[in-house]
Nucleic acid binder design. Structure first.
Length: 190
DNA sequence: CAAACGATGGGCT
DNA sequence: GCCCATCGTTTGC
């Protein structure tokens, strides 16, 4: 992996669209990502500083930061560095382009377009779990000269800094996850 | 179609 | 003890 996937997450994120990510015997074309910028971003896991969980974000670029959410799902970010600066890009969705049989096995019942449609589904399709925290995935720049149109919008599922339009996706892609605002807080007494 | 909701466990104040 | 960078199912228009 070269410099193209390193640097300011806000610049790297749109460049990752169309890139081919390979892990666990499955390759996919990234269609949707979100930027999480440094320690000043209230939406980032790194906002409150380094902990055991987010340590990988503070390391060198090119590694996966994998975390466990909602008691049952994994999400994966590509750390973009630079070393010591916890910038990362959440891998939200992709189109499976190789290893289709394996991806289907891991996501029984899912239609092909839904195999990696959403950050937890993407991890499932690629076989990513906490054991992969800190590993270096294989990632290649978007092939070809074709420049897809890119759309931007607010990040998904955040209560803090949800207004920043730091979600990027390939316009018109059927594998992009449908937008869901942050879940309302459940109230006591029911 | 959209909205509501439960599942389920680690992280952090 | 409360908060999640979610998903699949169910319910309701």
């Amino acid at each position: 992996m070269g410099d193209w996937a390193e640097g300011d997450p806000l610049e790297v994120a749109p460049r990752l669209l169309g890139a081919i990510l390979t892990h666990g015997g499955v390759s996919l074309r990234l269609t949707e990502v979100e930027a999480y910028a440094g320690p000043a971003d209230p939406g980032s896991h790194a906002y409150r500083g380094r902990t055991d969980r987010n340590a990988v974000m503070f390391g060198p670029p090119g590694h996966l930061y994998v975390y466990f959410v909602y008691g049952m799902h994994h999400c994966a970010n590509l750390v973009t560095g630079p070393d010591g600066d916890p910038g990362a890009v959440l891998l939200r969705a992709g189109e499976v382009v190789a290893g289709l049989d394996l991806a289907r096995e891991r996501r029984p019942g899912a239609r092909d377009r839904d195999l990696a449609r959403g950050p937890a589904r993407l991890c499932r399709a690629l076989g990513i779990d906490l054991d992969d925290n800190g590993v270096r995935p294989t990632i290649a720049p978007a092939p070809g000269e074709r420049v897809d149109q890119i759309s931007t919008g607010p990040r998904v599922g955040l209560r803090h800094a949800a207004d920043r339009p730091w979600r990027f996706w390939i316009t018109g892609e059927p594998t992009v996850s449908t937008y869901r605002p942050a879940a309302p807080r459940s109230r006591a007494g029911r």
